[in-house]
Simulated scan of single mutants.
Amino acid sequence: MSTIRVALGNPRDAQATALLRASHALMQALFSAEDNHFLSIDDLCAPNVCFFVAKEGDTSLGCVALALKEDYAEIKSMFVHPDARGKGIAHKLMQAIEAEARAHSIAEMKLETGDTLHQAHSLYRAHGYIDCGPFGDYEESPASLFMTKTLA
């Protein structure tokens, strides 16, 4: 059995791009255009974004981004390939981005996720995230769930 490792990656890497496109397609199938808040691949390459990939061997199985804001960091683009779910990959990705946030002296993490993404809600709650109101440029929407966590 090979080990899952998480490391900084490039959203333009072919495997990472494939994961992001699969994530975007899923979000577009589930939510209206105005309720989709995913970042484009170009936006994920911005200097204030740390992009992580989870790999098993040479195969990318999941990804997540950490967008560094002035007084918090936002989780973006959390996605694990459906065939790789149940291996703890999302938990490893969460640990990596929280460690990265701490390395940047970020005290608060925030996220927006879809109201029907119950597995995502469970993941975030398992990592100590609690519901909160909209933040940044987000507006209140029945299709969105906003969560926050203060890092120790």
Rank of each mutant, 00 (worst) to 15 (best):
M1K: 13
R5C: 08
L8F: 05
L8E: 13
P11T: 15
P11R: 14
A14Y: 08
A18C: 07
A18Y: 05
A25Y: 07
M27L: 15
A29Y: 06
L30S: 09
F31Y: 14
S32E: 15
S32M: 12
A33Q: 10
D35P: 01
N36A: 06
N36Y: 06
S40C: 08
D42I: 09
L44S: 11
A46T: 06
N48F: 06
V49N: 01
C50M: 13
V53F: 08
G57N: 04
C63V: 04
C63H: 02
L66Y: 06
K69T: 10
D71I: 08
Y72K: 07
E74I: 08
I75V: 15
R85K: 15
K87I: 14
A90Q: 01
E98I: 13
A99D: 13
A99H: 14
E100Y: 04
A101Q: 04
A103V: 12
I106V: 15
K110L: 04
K110I: 01
L111V: 02
L111P: 00
T113Y: 00
T113R: 00
G114K: 13
D115V: 15
Q119S: 11
S122E: 11
L123K: 04
A126R: 07
I130T: 15
I130D: 07
C132D: 02
G133T: 07
F135K: 00
G136D: 08
G136S: 05
E139S: 09
E140F: 11
K149I: 03
T150H: 04
A152S: 10
A152W: 03
